[in-house]
Simulated scan of single mutants.
Amino acid sequence: MILRILEEKIKSRLFKGKAVLVLGPRQSGKSTLVSTILQGQEYLSLNGDEAAVREALSNTSVAELERIIGRHKLVLIDEAQRIPDIGLTLKLITDQLKNVQVIATGSSAFELSARVNEPLTGRKYEYKLYPLSYGEMVGYHGYLKEKQLLETRLIYGYYPEIVTHPGEEKELLKLLAESYLYKDLLSLEQIQKPALLEKLLRALALQIGSEVSYHELAQLTGANKQTVEKYIDLLEKAFVIIVLPAYSGNIRNEIKKGKKIYFLDCGIRNAVIRNFQPLSARTDTGALWENFVIVERIKFLYQSGIDAKQYFWRTTQQQEIDLIEEHEAGVLHAFECKWSAASKARFPSTFTDQYHPISKQVITPENVKDFLM
């Protein structure tokens, strides 16, 4: 079994008087993770996809919850975002049933967080479970094996079902992309134009690694800028994409409001554009590597509990740096992503002379281990 880094962290939070929330996209392994954590223990499992569970857990009372939970000390609520007023229900359990530990999973940060944040203020531990990470896979079968599989990861990504079913990646990714991209998103009231969502996703998939213009995306998809902004915000909160803002300080010609958009998983990105060609037949290898490195770095920082803000940097004269990290006390680190170790990377003096980053590094397949572990 592939050990998830969050496992021990979540175990340490049980029976501390707070609800435990595990957020992440569908099929990222939330149920498997929680089942592993609770293995060998008796617990009550409830699924928010079931109508009877939704009815029983919404607008409920302490007496009704006591009847449902019975003598169980552990309660797992899967797909909790489907349950109306779930935040109030979790608050009742946490406040009134002191000997009960509740763990809730949700596949949409937008839906579940919106429903629990206010009722559960000070009453929850919240975790994000991303698809498998580079570090987790190195821990599973070693660095050399994972290095050999880097090209596969750039094409098919890190979703658990994809990683554990070699040879079936294309078929499974198509099913996964259709179900997880559209099932959750199209259930939201804010998504009123499914065809527009598909157009926007494809446009974003074709622009990874490039600065995106919401105005140009609106023209390309036949929507208005406000709708594009709303849909991109929802895509980010539904764990489909990651938005990287531009870094700007004092330099007059810096891009100050630009954004780059990456997909949380390279496999999903390739499924959106229906391109599973090997790297030797592609023109987007550099962009895929950049997407991979930045997203895996985000996973690593989160799993390690390192607080760092991330940006890209660019000027109107096309000087740019792929990734800027701002750590505590404003300390900056600059990174360039290059699939070929022979590729030259320059860090513009316009940036280094002004901001004095404490480190500058080019990330290639040869040294990526040290960057992601």
Rank of each mutant, 00 (worst) to 15 (best):
V240C: 14
Q226K: 11
L244M: 13
A238K: 09
Q219L: 10
V228K: 08
G222K: 06
L244H: 08
G249L: 09
Y231A: 08
A246H: 03
G249I: 03
T221F: 04
Y231G: 11
I232V: 14
A223Q: 04
A223E: 03
Y247M: 03
I232R: 00
I242F: 15
G249M: 04
I251R: 12
Y247I: 01
A223C: 05
Y247D: 02
N224D: 15
K237Y: 08
Q226I: 08
F239L: 11
T221S: 04
L244C: 09
L217N: 04
E216W: 09
S248L: 01
P245F: 06
K230D: 09
P245N: 04
K237E: 12
Y247Q: 03
L234I: 13
E236Q: 14
A238Q: 12
V243Q: 12
Q226S: 13
L234A: 11
E236Y: 07
L234T: 06
A246F: 01
V228Y: 14
Y231T: 08
E229M: 14
D233G: 04
I251C: 06
V243F: 08
K230C: 00
L235F: 01
N224H: 14
Y247L: 03
S248M: 02
I242Y: 15
Y247N: 01
I242S: 15
L244P: 03
L217K: 02
A223R: 07
N250M: 02
K230T: 11
Q219V: 04
E229S: 12
Q226Y: 08
L235A: 01
T221N: 04
G222D: 09
L220S: 08
E216K: 15
Y231C: 10
E236D: 08
L234K: 02
Y231P: 10
E229I: 11
F239Q: 11
T227H: 04
P245D: 02
L217D: 02
Y247K: 05
I242G: 13
K237R: 14
L244G: 10
L235D: 02
I242N: 15
A238T: 15
Y231M: 08
Y231S: 09
L235M: 10
Q226E: 12
L220M: 05
A223V: 05
V228P: 07
A238M: 12
D233M: 07
K237C: 05
L244S: 10
Y231V: 07
V240P: 00
T221M: 04
G222C: 07
E229H: 11
P245C: 03
L235E: 01
E229Y: 07
L217C: 07
I232H: 00
V240W: 09
S248R: 07
Q219I: 03
I232C: 05
E229K: 14
A238E: 11
L217F: 11
L235K: 00
Y231H: 05
K230W: 00
N250S: 10
A218Q: 07
V240Y: 10
N224C: 11
A246R: 00
L235C: 03
E216I: 13
G249Q: 13
I251Y: 14
G222P: 07
A238L: 13
V243P: 02
K237F: 06
S248I: 01
V240I: 15
I242W: 15
L244T: 11
L235V: 01
K230F: 00
G249R: 14
P245V: 00
K237N: 11
P245E: 01
T227P: 03
L244A: 13
V228G: 08
V243K: 15
A246M: 03
I232N: 00
K237W: 05
K225S: 12
